[in-house]
Amino acid sequence: MKKSFSYWLIYLALPIIVLAVWEGFDIAGRLKPYTMPAPMAIVDTTLDYIKNGKLWTNITVSFLRVLKGFGVGLAAGFLVGILSALFPKFEAFTDLVIQILRPIPPIAWIPLAILWFGIGEESKVFIIFLGAFFPIFLNTAEGVKSIDSKYFELAQVYEVPKPMLIWQIVIPGALPSIMTGIRLGVGNAWVCVVAAEMIGAVSGVGHMLSDGRSLSRPDIVILGMLIVGIVGKIMDDILKLIHKKLITWI
């Protein structure tokens, strides 16, 4: 669907107004560079970071961490979700532990993760895994449980072997819900990588933020925040697109 010109006008109006007001404050001389830099200072910093390669390195470092942690979280969340939805005994066995661990924010695991794994890769991947696991697990289990049992009755009539039901009914039936879990999981993973990197890391977008603070360089901090926001939005857009391509039947 092609959006009209007036749509884009409305869509971009608010960011433009924010920038204009911001620039207005700068012209009026109301901004102090060590607390709030002018918009142009951020553009300059961005160009610097592009030139010295730090921008790209920090983004890829954080992104790869997310990919690793999310990958493990997806595999585990999907598997545990399906198992606990299909086997009540498995659910009973795991339920209490999962329900107690679930409300603990992944960020609260950072101290323990650093004690266990140091400040290297593993501690970040572990935090990201926790952030991705729970939404994917919950939505997968919920999705499988919400599949109408009449489809299983139908499969009985046509003598469809049980293992095939996983591929033909369970996974496609739960897929819309699983995709929702994946979107939440990726969002969470991205939040977690920034948090983990802010507390203990020598690279990544989160490190940029804490670095900017210790150098009293709000321009670096704001650039880091913008990267977090923009990359997060792009990832979500890509997932929305995958969702649309994958689930064509609704």
Partner: peptide
Amino acid sequence: RDKGFIFQDHRLLPW
């Protein structure tokens, strides 16, 4: 399979 059953709902798999 040799006892075909047509339910009140069509029961086609939507996907």
